[in-house]
Structures are given as C-alpha cells and as structure tokens.
Write a protein that binds this DNA or RNA. Sequence first.
RNA 1: CGCGGGAUAGAGCAGUCUGGUAGCUCGCAAGGCUCAUAACCUUGAGGUCAGUGGUUCAAAUCCACUUCCCGCAA
Length: 317
Amino acid sequence: MNDKEILETNSKEKLKIVFMGTPDFAVPALKKLIERHNVISVFTKEAKPVGRNMVLTKSPVQVVAEEYGIPVQTPKNFKDVLSITKVQMFHPDMIIVCAYGVILPERVLDIPRLGCINIHASILPRHRGANPIQRAIMAGDRMAGVTIMNMDKGVDTGSMLLKDAIPVPQDMTYGELENALSEMGGNLIIEYLDNMDNILPQRQPREFTLAPKLEKEEAIINWEKNATTIHNLVRGLSPYPYAKFTHNDNVIKLIKSEVVKETTDKPAGTVLSNDLQIACGEGTVLKILSVQKAGGKIIDTKSFLNGYKIEIGEVLK
RNA sequence: CGCGGGAUAGAGCAGUCUGGUAGCUCGCAAGGCUCAUAACCUUGAGGUCAGUGGUUCAAAUCCACUUCCCGCAA
C-alpha cells in the first residue's frame, strides 16, 4: 500500500463528493451526505419560472445546498466543454447522482476516481428510466425500493451495488411511496459509503422493464380499463398530476378511489350509484372517494355530489 | 405583468348578467312514523354574502382596491 492509498483510506469519511440532484426526492440524500461527508459542490437544474405567477424558483436541492453554504452549479447540460470543466475543477472523489434530470456523458462519468454513483428509486432492473416510482404504483407492484448503482453510459444500466425494498400496500399513493423511498435512498447511500470496500458490483440481469417519463395523455382515465388498473393510475398520479376525466366540459380530477368487489354488466363508464361507483372494463367497479374540480379544493365524493349533478345511468367518457 | 376560476350557514353549491324578504342538496338538533334504520315525514338552530371604500332611496348583486384559495400552462 503506497502513501497515496493510505491517505485515501484514512480520509475515507472525508470523501470529496459532488452531488447532482434536483427535486425533493434528492433532498434527504443530500442532507445526510452533507452531515457525514465532504460535499464540495452541488449540481442541479437551473431555477425556472414556476407556479401561478411564473416566479423564478430554485430547485429544492439548490435551496438546501445554499442553506449549507455549498456552491451550486446549474449547467443546462454537459454538451459543452465549459460545463464539463466545471465538474473537473472540483476534483471530486465521487459524484453522487439522485434524480438530477440531466444525462451525464462519458466524459463526466470518467472524472471522479471512485466513479459516479446513482441513487435509483426502483429495484433494478425493474423500472429503468425517469419515473420509476409512479410506474411502480401504476403497475401495481407489491414491492418497491431503491438501488445504489454504478453509472455507465446507458440509462440505469450500470452494475448494482446495494438495494433495499419495502412492501407497497395497494392503496399507497405515489407521494407516499416517494417519501418512503426518498428516505431510504438517503440511508442507503450512506450505508454504501460506509461499506464501500466490502461491496461488489453486481451485473443487472438481462430481463428489465422501462419506466419512461409520464405523458400527459396517460392521466386521462379510460373507463374501458379494469378497475384495478384505473385505481393504480389514480394512486400512481397522486398527488401530482392526478388522474382525470371530463364531464360536461368540467375537468374532474380523481384524488382517491377504491376497487369495489361487486361486478356489473353495464357498459364501461356507467354511473352505478349515488355515491359514484363507476362501471369499468371487464365488469369491474371502481368507487370514487374524493375528487377535485377545476378551481375547487379537494373534497370527498359526498360533498361533491351535494353541489354537482351526476345522474345514475350516465356514461362517462 | 403567462391564461383562467373562486370566496354566500358546519360541508358542497345556486343566486350576481337584469340591485328590492338569504336559497338548494347535505350535515346538525328536536319531535313523529317504524320491529328497525344511514330510509321517510314535521319543525328548528345556524349568515357581518372574504375585507375596505364608492355609486344608490336600496348592494351578495354595480364600480375600485386589498387579502386568501384553486385550475391551466411551464
């Protein structure tokens, strides 16, 4: 063991880390890393106009980084030499990426001597891609988790280092699962850094599934699908952007639903009862528990029906 | 100045255009009917119509401003 290696071993707890991430999901990991290691810089997506008044808003990761006084970089991407140089400048031992939203080219992946490590919110190789958490709920997965992995030039294709998983109750929403996995990701990356030397990278099995970015049309409910599929869509898109349907030109978001045991022979979309049980595909029935109308707050179905007319026998589209 | 909707009883809404007694569906309370009920009937309580100012004989309603809430878009 030469001097350099001894030095590295002794200073392992003081790894120079560059953190890359953007949304709330990445915040627990960032905080834990800041507390235990040496996060020398944070890369995040640039502040963008957001919300009702188009106010320029910093990403949650940037807000936290600035609270801790850590320098923040917001390159648009790494297609130009300058933004790559920005990474090189810091001479990081390791880059840790968590829901960054920007693709890292090989020239960036090669910079840190300990490589680029990704915190991915699925049990790989299931749900590679941009929206693993929503996709897991939408698919009705019984288990969900986080994988710590080495990054390579493919999207979520690198070798796996550490995993953890939790059961997913069939009424859990995307938001709830995201919170759970967000904490898990923070804990798991710390666990990895503590035990790095004893962890062997493992190749991903060949069989994988993709979790592509959500398209807008996917939020529109198709009553021809069976009730479980729709129910999974509802909770997979809660609390954002919510599954929706239109009734008399009113957009109605479906906040909470429940699959009913009974079956029906009415065509899909038929309103079956005065508490909004709706016929779905294959004779299944979905009960709507709470909704939100454009301009209104989230309310339970009973309140909603006190002021909004939907007749039994109507067929929703 | 990105586009738009909204604030009326504990809840959800109508009424505003066209100014003139505060309404609907629920909930709540009391009583009745019933073997019984979340069903049905009767009665009742509960409002500073978001706030401030203006117009008017008269404002939930028209005008101006303020505060708060929400949808779209990104």
